[in-house]
Amino acid sequence: MVTRLNPYLSFRDSAREAMEFYRSVLGGELEISTFRELGMPVGPGEEDLVMHSMLETPGGLVLMGADTPSSMEYSPGGSISVSLSGDDTAELTGYWEGLVEGATITAPFEVAPWGDLFGMLVDRFGVTWMVNGPAPE
């Protein structure tokens, strides 16, 4: 098996909604397992929260996520960004347009000083995304 580096996002109680949103933007197959399904003990009312989810797109993108039980410390956002980059401007523009729904744009999706098409946003779940691709000709 090839070694891969996959972003693994943490949420308090919105992992299912977030991962379904990312599937609507990125496409692909989404697998979701709850704490109940995997027999993991959590606090009352948390049994149906997401213990593990994995979104895998036909193009090979992999994004994982889970809810953080109330018994564990949770610090949203902060020190990590998910970056999408490539050569397909139309594909990257489509991702940007999907992610921008309910997001706070921190850098508009436009030609950056280094010549690429670039944008940055914090999505409605508190996750920072960067999208970078070739400038339109």
Rank of each mutant, 00 (worst) to 15 (best):
H52N: 07
L84T: 04
E31P: 10
V25S: 04
F21T: 09
Y74R: 00
A66M: 14
G98H: 02
G133A: 10
A107F: 10
D116L: 12
R4A: 14
Y22N: 01
E137W: 03
M1A: 15
E29V: 10
G27K: 00
A135N: 07
G27F: 05
H52Y: 11
S10A: 13
R36I: 12
D13N: 09
Y95M: 15
V100N: 02
G65W: 00
P76W: 04
P134I: 08
A90T: 14
W96D: 05
V82M: 01
D67W: 06
T93R: 07
V2G: 08
A103L: 03
N6A: 12
G60C: 03
P7F: 09
F118S: 12
E137M: 04
P44A: 11
G43Q: 03
E20C: 03
V131G: 04
F35A: 01
G94P: 02
P134N: 11
G27Y: 10
I80K: 08
G39F: 06
V111Q: 15
E56P: 02
L117S: 07
V100M: 13
I105H: 08
V100S: 15
A107L: 12
T68A: 01
T68E: 00
P44T: 12
I32A: 07
S75V: 14
T104M: 05
T68L: 00
V122H: 05
E97P: 05
D48Q: 11
M54P: 02
G133P: 07
V50M: 02
S71F: 14
A15I: 03
E20I: 01
E110A: 14
S83Y: 11
T93A: 04
W96Q: 10
L63T: 07
F118Q: 11
P7R: 04
E110I: 12
M64I: 10
I105P: 04
V122E: 15
V25P: 03
D123P: 12
